[in-house]
């Protein structure tokens, strides 16, 4: 069974993002970039499937600039077998990403695609579901636990207020949530080994996908700033203030 794991290169989650003065976006110059944290969880889950003998091959796919090959290398160092880099300039919307992934799935015929539930840059939370819809496959979003069966998978999902288990027929798309696993760190020998693993380079045109954004970003601004408030001296003063503003 092949597993495809899309990985996105995003601003590292520890970096404070800065909105550009001209309001065209956020400043990406000289900022630390990393693999989207939810995608790390996806890679980890795929590798565990391989270690358990359930998966035969794990393919990491990234759609982005040339530097996204580094993100693929990270996945390869964690244990993925090979990579596909679909080179694009500029922003690619989830629908276009899903269309490219659909074409890759049609060529590679995986039984499972594991995506992060969302990327921490655009926070769209769409790609996995869109891919499943385009392929006519079932989906299990916000996965908390995966149990592979014969031609099917039982997936426990994080939902508002608790956990829900769905059974999906394979092939399927699963999107990962935080509690699914703890991603491993790549060991030095594995980082060295990853350098020899193959990465195919493609373009959206190879898959016949137009990646022109459909949504027009008119501006990107800072959220309204919160003013630091006042210091109170005691618990009773705190409660009095909270009562005064009607918060309790």
């Amino acid at each position: 069974m092949k597993v495809i794991v899309p990985v996105k290169r995003v601003i590292d989650y520890n970096v404070k993002v800065r909105v550009k003065a001209d309001q065209t976006g956020v400043d990406l110059a000289n900022v630390k970039m990393s693999m989207n944290p939810f995608d790390e969880i996806s890679v980890e889950e795929a590798i565990r499937l391989k270690e358990k003998g359930k998966a035969t091959e794990v393919i990491a796919v990234s759609i982005g600039p040339q530097q996204a090959s580094e993100t693929i290398r990270t996945a390869l160092a964690m244990g993925a077998d090979r990579g596909i880099l679909v080179k694009t300039d500029g922003e690619v919307e989830p629908l276009a990403v899903a269309k490219i992934l659909k074409a890759i799935c049609e060529a590679e015929k995986p039984e499972l695609v594991i995506t992060g539930k969302q990327a921490i840059d655009d926070d769209s939370n769409q790609t996995g579901q869109m891919l499943a819809a385009l392929l006519g496959w079932p989906q299990a979003t916000f996965a908390h636990k995966l149990e592979m069966g014969d031609g099917k998978a039982d997936i426990e999902r994080e939902i508002d207020g608790g956990l829900q288990t769905v059974e999906v027929k394979l092939p399927a798309v699963m999107t990962t949530d935080l509690r699914l696993n703890e991603p491993r760190y790549a060991s030095l020998p594995n980082i060295m080994k990853a350098k020899k693993k193959p990465i195919d380079e493609k373009t959206p045109a190879d898959y016949g996908v137009d990646v022109t954004p459909r949504l027009k970003t008119l501006k990107v601004t800072e959220p309204p700033k919160r003013q630091a408030g006042i210091k109170v001296k005691s618990v009773s003063e705190l409660l009095a203030k909270l009562k005064e503003v009607g918060a309790i």
């Binding site: 956020v26 921490i120 840059d121 926070d123 949504l215 970003t217 008119l218 501006k219 990107v220 601004t221």
Partner: peptide, 10 residues
Amino acid sequence: IYAGNAIATV
């Protein structure tokens, strides 16, 4: 976007 650290008008 960016967990609310920026607001995009689209």
